[in-house]
Design a protein around this nucleic acid. Sequence first.
DNA 1: AAATCGTGGCG
DNA 2: TCGCCAAGATT
Length: 289
Amino acid sequence: MTSLDTPALLSWFDRVGRPLPWRGDGVGAWEILLCEVMSQQTPVARVEPVWRAWLDRWPGPAELAAAAPADVIRMWGKLGYPRRALRLRECALAVVDLHDGRVPHDVDQLLALPGVGDYTARAVACFAYGRRVPVVDTNVRRVVARAVRGVAEAGPPSTRRDLAAVEALLPDDRERAVAFSVAVMELGALVCTARAPRCDDCPLAPTCAWLAAGRPEWDGPRRKVQTFAGTDRQVRGLLLDVLRDGDGTAARSALDAVWPDATQRDRALDSLLGDGLVVRVGEHYSLPA
DNA sequence: AAATCGTGGCG
DNA sequence: TCGCCAAGATT
């Protein structure tokens, strides 16, 4: 099996695809880039309100480029991985300075933007500009692994291999290629999910290699689960929480209160300073002005 | 190449 | 309950 049943897939999407706000007509490339970055490792449901709030406050790259990092970090709220917020602002600066304020069409130019990697560059080229390029995210990798290769999980990612695999499945027609990518991602998000795939509701069930093989369990390496409790990431989150919630400034004592282990606390604070998410002002700490 | 980087919800 | 997972990027 070297292809997916594209007609079945597209018809399924027409029926049950979610009307996400950035999928409508007239949504510009900047808005799409913004939602793609916000969606990195983040459930779509959490993204929508923040996406709207950002666009309301900063309609385009020029406005965001002029924003204070502190405001950007606050508006990011609790989406997680707050470095993305800073990179988004740097991305806006790059779009303004290098591309005359317009999001580039070219994948390589998109890849050069801060916070934009292989997935996001191709997602913008495809969804915003209708380019026929493979778009590979975790959903796409999982759907292809199951429906085409007949295995339960995608295994460790390899950009080159993954892109080639999806390129081979991509319809020749540009518009169908775009619809294909949207639909595969949606299928992975709604039906062909990681934990409890709903094969009964899957448009690809009649042709799915994994289902045909009796849904064999994955025998490859287990995806390593990132622990969170007790890690520096948790401490960073707690520290930043203090600065986000107040006026953006906190005394050392206020930061010290969030975590008992001084060594780890200092390490987390140092890393936040290194990332530019926090700055020291005299005896206090604050979000970067 | 493998580790790191938040947060919250669901099964 | 708690491990698992979510439209990845960067170093």
